[in-house]
Simulated scan of single mutants.
Amino acid sequence: MSQLVSYELEHRQATSELERQNEQLEEFASVVSHDLLNPLQVAEGRLELAREEHDSEHLDAVARAHERIDALIDDLLTLAREGKQVNELEPVDMGILTENCWQNVATTDGTLMADVERTFQADRSRLQQLLENLMHNAVEHGGGDVTITVGELDGGFYVEDDGPGIPDDKRDDIFEAGYSTAEDGTGFGLSIVKQVAEAHDWHVRVTDGSDGGARFEITGVESTAE
């Protein structure tokens, strides 16, 4: 009986914590949808006017960035409202996706070392979201000249950097919604990483990188070659 009571209490605590995190994510998603979509639409309108006056590859890059922002907002809203659901899984070439994600990371001095050639079964958009959040997190904490390595694991892949790393006593906290040690951080990047992983029934953990930084390992990933 005491074991049943203890289990029920732990279950209620876990449920309460999950509900709290979901409420935080829903609130953040609402802010994103209302406070970002309007200025984004203005920016897109100005971009079209600029294209009528100028022909530049830089404007094409701005358009691609706008498209990605639109997609991220949609995904964030879906993630907040649908929880652990993912769309249809498809074969995703990790090497190509990693390079594409790197193009959306705001750093000119950083270095990407991609050593992954496998194809995984995943929701492409959600996996892209996971990778970009890990890359942005590395730049945010490791600086603009950070080196990020994406490589293969047995049953998955890893993303590591040569930044300051994450102390042992903070490694459980970093995945909580709203937790951030950066002054301008939203605190939702790594929470989204965890939710995307769990939505695929993957496991994510953080450990030390080979160069002293942070290393995120995602396992339980189905490869098309398996």
Rank of each mutant, 00 (worst) to 15 (best):
R118I: 08
E152D: 14
T98P: 07
R46W: 10
M1N: 10
Q103P: 02
I174W: 04
M113L: 14
E57C: 10
H34K: 13
T98K: 11
D168W: 08
A65D: 00
V204L: 05
T149V: 09
D172T: 12
Q195M: 00
L127Q: 00
E53H: 15
A197E: 00
Y179A: 08
G142V: 00
Q3S: 09
E226L: 10
V146Y: 04
A199R: 03
E132G: 00
D161T: 01
T107K: 13
G213N: 07
A50R: 10
A214M: 02
I73D: 06
V32W: 02
I192F: 04
V86W: 13
E19P: 02
T149P: 04
M1I: 07
D169M: 07
I148K: 06
Q103D: 12
N137M: 01
G155C: 07
R205A: 05
I69A: 14
E82K: 15
D145H: 04
W102D: 08
G151D: 07
I96S: 10
T181F: 05
A197S: 11
D35E: 13
T147N: 10
D145C: 05
L153G: 04
R46C: 14
E53V: 15
I73H: 07
G189D: 03
D109C: 09
G189N: 07
N137Q: 10
Q128A: 07
N38C: 05
S180E: 03
L37G: 03
C101H: 03
S125M: 08
R20I: 08
Q41S: 14
L134H: 08
L79Y: 07
R64D: 06
Q21G: 12
L79G: 03
V196K: 09
V5N: 15
S180N: 06
A14Q: 15
E117D: 12
S2I: 11
H58C: 10
R215H: 03
T108V: 12
L190W: 02
E90P: 04
V62P: 00
E82P: 01
E23D: 15
D55C: 06
D154I: 05
V204I: 14
E57H: 10
E117N: 13
L89N: 08
S191A: 15
V159S: 02
D115L: 04
E67V: 07
S180V: 03
Y7S: 02
G163P: 09
K84G: 10
R68L: 02
R126A: 13
D162T: 01
A61W: 06
T147C: 13
S6I: 11
L77F: 08
Y158V: 05
D70E: 15
E27S: 15
R215D: 00
E222Q: 12
P39E: 11
H11E: 11
E88R: 15
F120C: 10
V206Y: 00
H136L: 01
G143S: 02
L131Q: 01
N104K: 08
D184L: 13
E52N: 13
Q41K: 15
A214L: 02
H11G: 03
G95P: 04
L4H: 13
V86I: 13
R205E: 05
L37Q: 09
Q13G: 06
D60L: 11
A43W: 12
S223C: 00
T98W: 05
D35N: 15
